[in-house]
Design a protein around this nucleic acid. Structure first.
Lengths: 124, 124
DNA sequence: GTTTCATGTAACTTATGTAGTTACGATTCG
DNA sequence: CGAATCGTAACTACATAAGTTACATGAAAC
């Protein structure tokens, strides 16, 4: 699929698509071809790609909105707060990563197919 | 403590302090007094205030950086992704809220005192 | 009662990060 | 060759949060 087509599907811009897909290509998850009949193609079995791999490929963006903390503050109050939160956030992140590594693109594809069949059955 | 003094401690601006502290006042956690020898005062026992209450008082800001999802998308792919993520994020949020409700300001104060004593012992 | 010191709050400015856009070069296929 | 497509740099637009200014309101000190 071309960047233009993907951008249309995602309601965004072809360049944004290329930027993001480029990261997936660096991780070996997709390939791209230039020129006529070029575009993006999945390079691996959907069963082998997990959300965790995608997250990693995309640069491990922060899970938490409160992650903008100074990790080595001089302030003792800040240190105490960090100590209290670190443990909590580390556990929550571990939980998220674990779940992410359990979900494959094949799972999502299967769920999509189910929803698609359901929608057709209802005559929409 | 005055907003000016707090702003200095927090390396921010007095108006920002008032905005935030105002939310805590609405929740009954602090009081404010105008005029001479005015400022902010804690209104409750530190043992009774949890991080969860603070979070709630501050308007329950989002925990997750990936929370900007359309909750009722037409797109079936989006629906499938949401279904996969919702469960995960709900569990993680529950974990965070649970931990937040276990941590009191008294806990933080105690940890601060410990750190302060430690620092003094080391002659800093 | 006037002065001084505070908060309360509206309005505006600044900073930051992300997404979007334009432009054009590089490459591939027909 | 020429059309299609990605690669990428550079710029713009936008949204959000923080910072700032300004001034009104209220309370204590003298």
């Amino acid at each position: 699929m071309t960047s233009d087509k993907l951008a249309e599907c995602l309601h965004t811009n072809p360049v944004v698509v290329r930027r993001t897909m480029g990261l997936l290509r660096e991780a070996g998850i997709v390939t791209s071809d230039r020129g006529h009949s070029g575009g993006w193609r999945i390079a691996v079995d959907l069963n082998t790609v997990t959300l965790r791999q995608l997250h990693s490929a995309l640069g491990e963006p922060a899970f938490f909105a409160m992650g903008n903390r100074n990790e080595t503050p001089e302030c003792l109050v800040e240190q105490a707060v960090n100590a209290a939160l670190d443990d909590t956030f580390i556990k929550a992140e571990a939980l998220l990563l674990e779940r992410f590594s359990e979900i494959t693109l094949a799972d999502l594809a299967a769920d999509f197919s189910r929803r698609y069949a359901e929608q057709r059955k209802q005559g929409r």
